[in-house]
Design a protein around this nucleic acid. Structure first.
Lengths: 238, 238
DNA sequence: TTTTATATGTAGCTTTGGCAACAAATCGGA
DNA sequence: TCCGATTTGTTGCCAAAGCTACATATAAAA
């Protein structure tokens, strides 16, 4: 079970600088980490619940959801190999600040949170390395939040769309790429209403700024778009 | 110079668990940290510039600003004793993602960033502790960003105001408190226009939800307000 | 294939909030 | 004390975007 996913696990920034053999030892003997499978619709962690483990997604599609009783929600998608939970835990809150919702059948590694704060005798050698890795991961997550904050600080729908498209383009290293979100999810991500977003998208298409069929986007006038956001196409990351 | 500020420095979460005598040694002999004073209007760090040091504010008022060429800007205020820079640095970007702008004459401790990644022989004993502290700080900063994200995800001005007021109330542990921001800054923080915010504030006052004179706010109907945000008054922090 | 569900595009109407412009008030020197 | 500068409150107008409702399209299931 664990074997099948070792390649993804090895590539996780949490374990960078640790040899594969050491890692297997660590996972089995010390961490008591568990592979868990989830079906679409399941909830891995509930907002407000205590953080008992970090979630390291290995396969599938898991959403990070902040939902209000009023129905508004904003979402993001977890990235393979990047553990979620450390921020909630190490900030001292020790409770989930978001809900993790499974969008498509997924597999994740659950890592008890005490791997770093209470290293067992065997993993002590890795303690420092793991803490350093964790520092990098949490910093990157914070950058991700900052990116999102920048996006939401645009007041216009068009600016948000442009910022998002430029970011995606930059991540893909091309002006043609495939959107990872469907329209509903994208509207949630941009924190705008879906019809308004659709309206804007088709206007942008008719103005010849972009083109798209389904989820395949082509940016036609990158420089014009870049001018609109006033700043910042973004460096990819990690 | 350093002496005068030791009490604030000692209380910084960056040095928690380190004794005062050890700390003085550390600061003088190993870190080569510098006390720096700034006048209103000065810029401590420029967005995009390389991160050469972390900024630990000791006194005064320093704003964290994200500004666009289009003039839109969002701001936050640095908290005494909480270093800024680690996220930019440890995420691997190694460049400032914001600008630090001095609002009122201030004093800060500048800490070369290599205190953790390249510990000198004398500070090695503290290396682990410092890294752990840093992990906590970065996590808390990320929580702060998440909080902000939550605020901006409200589409209505009133909801944002309410969320902000409830947060401040919770921080002060009272329904009567003093706003730390003037109207302009608060409008920037909420990412709305100042006149619209003023309009909403006075409507809320006339509806008897809140009362205020200058910066002194009283929340009159806390339960009604709490219902409006649908969620989350927030736990203080750190 | 037909049927049902889900995703996407479109349109009209209404509300919200941005903006500009101005008035009132507060503050800090000279 | 008075004067200029900054801060705050207020108003009206207009554009942007939300919402409902429906049409179309694509995908999945029967």
């Amino acid at each position: 079970m664990l074997k099948a996913h070792m390649s993804v696990i090895c590539r996780s920034p949490l374990f960078s600088g640790i040899k594969t053999e050491e890692l297997e030892q660590l996972l089995n003997k010390c961490f008591h980490a568990k592979i868990q499978t989830y079906a679409r619709g399941e909830v891995i962690a509930h907002r407000e619940a205590p953080v008992e483990f970090f979630v390291l997604p290995l396969k599938g599609r898991i959403a990070i959801v902040s939902e209000r009783s009023s129905g508004e929600r904003i979402i993001d998608i977890m990235r393979e190999g990047v553990p979620y939970g450390p921020i909630s835990y190490y900030s001292g809150a020790k409770r989930w600040i978001v809900t993790l919702e499974v969008l498509a059948d997924s597999v994740a590694l659950l890592i008890p949170h005490d791997i770093i704060t209470n290293p067992c005798s065997k993993s002590c050698g890795m303690h420092v390395k793991l803490t350093e890795n964790m520092l990098g991961i949490v910093s990157c997550s914070a950058m991700q939040l900052d990116l999102r904050l920048n996006l939401l600080s645009y007041k216009g729908i068009r600016e948000r769309i442009v910022y998002y498209l430029l970011t995606q383009s930059s991540l893909n290293g091309s002006l043609r790429f495939c959107l990872p979100l469907n329209r509903n999810e994208m509207a949630d991500y941009l924190n705008v209403s879906r019809p308004s977003m659709s309206r804007e998208l088709s206007e942008m298409k008719s103005e010849g700024l972009i083109d798209y069929h389904k989820n395949n986007i082509t940016i036609i006038k990158p420089d014009l778009l870049a001018k609109m956001t006033g700043e910042y196409p973004l460096k990819p990351r990690e």
